[in-house]
């Protein structure tokens, strides 16, 4: 529905590199770096990421985002924003990921990238949750939905199983990345589970694992399970309804 041209692919890859640095800087930073010790790095990235997202989104919409894509994005984001508070606060029940997985699957990777962004942005606006974590969440969700659009072409039950497995893997990855970005905010420096700039990646990863175990493992597992269950339960209905809408939306070509 939203075409991904070669130039867009290049921009998406560059955005991916910047995103990896923004999420993973505690693992990548060297002790010589000025930002390794102050608390400035998370804020630098929280200011840079919106600009990078804006550039990629502008490129995707320049590549031909017609009114059907806009309306479909609006409605799917609205459903996502409406069901997201259902799970918030309850340990690990995440009710929005399955929608992005299914939406990205039906309408393709470019649509998925925009859908992940608009869903979390609309949800944050509706609940007054705009903060430094929002760009990270938007980018993470965008990658989840984009990946769903790149999955191989399977049909029937195999497709559902593949999407459920993808849901598990992608939610765990999302949880890992968000933990990574939240790690310096949450424990700061100085504890034995804080990151040590310039340490071997493996040693920092063990500390990150200890931090995740102590704070959010329940949430991450809960998110993975709810996503897989919701994909399996609602997948048949949603896939059929979305595909029918996509066929009906082809106003010009049959």
């Amino acid at each position: 529905m939203i075409s991904v041209r070669p130039k867009t692919t290049v921009l998406l890859i560059l955005c991916g590199l910047i995103g990896i640095a923004a999420f993973g800087w505690p693992l990548l930073v060297t002790p010589d770096s000025k930002i390794a010790h102050g608390g400035d790095a998370p804020w630098t990235f929280a200011l840079l990421l919106p600009l990078v997202l804006a550039v990629v989104l502008a490129e995707l919409s320049e590549g031909g985002m017609d009114s059907k894509a806009v309306a479909m994005l609006g409605v799917l984001s609205a459903i996502g924003a409406a069901v997201r508070p259902l799970g918030a606060g309850t340990a690990g029940i995440e009710t929005v990921f399955f929608l992005m997985v299914l939406g990205g699957r039906v309408f393709g990777p470019g649509f998925g990238f925009v859908l992940g962004n608009t869903t979390l942005f609309a949800s944050a606006l509706l609940t007054g949750g705009v903060g430094p974590w929002l760009p990270y969440q938007m980018l993470g969700a965008a990658w989840v939905a984009l990946g769903a659009g790149l999955l191989p072409d399977l049909k029937g039950r195999a497709e559902l199983v593949m999407l459920a497995l993808y849901g598990v893997v992608s939610s765990l990855m999302y949880g890992f990345l968000l933990n990574l970005s939240f790690w310096p905010y949450a424990v700061g420096t100085g504890t034995t589970v804080s990151f040590v700039p310039g340490d071997p990646v493996w040693d920092n990863l063990i500390r990150l694992a200890a931090f995740s175990l102590a704070t959010s493992l329940g949430w991450d597992l809960g998110r993975a399970i709810t996503t897989a269950v919701l994909v399996l339960l609602t997948g048949p209905v949603f896939l059929r309804a979305l595909r029918r809408a996509a066929r009906k939306a082809a106003f010009i070509s049959p």
């Binding site: 806009v70 309306a71 609006g74 924003a81 962004n117 608009t118 606006l125």
Partner: peptide, 12 residues
């Protein structure tokens, strides 16, 4: 970002 912001307005 006109198109994207219209999509968010539609969502809201």
């Amino acid at each position: 970002l006109y198109e994207v912001s219209v999509a968010v307005v539609v969502a809201l």
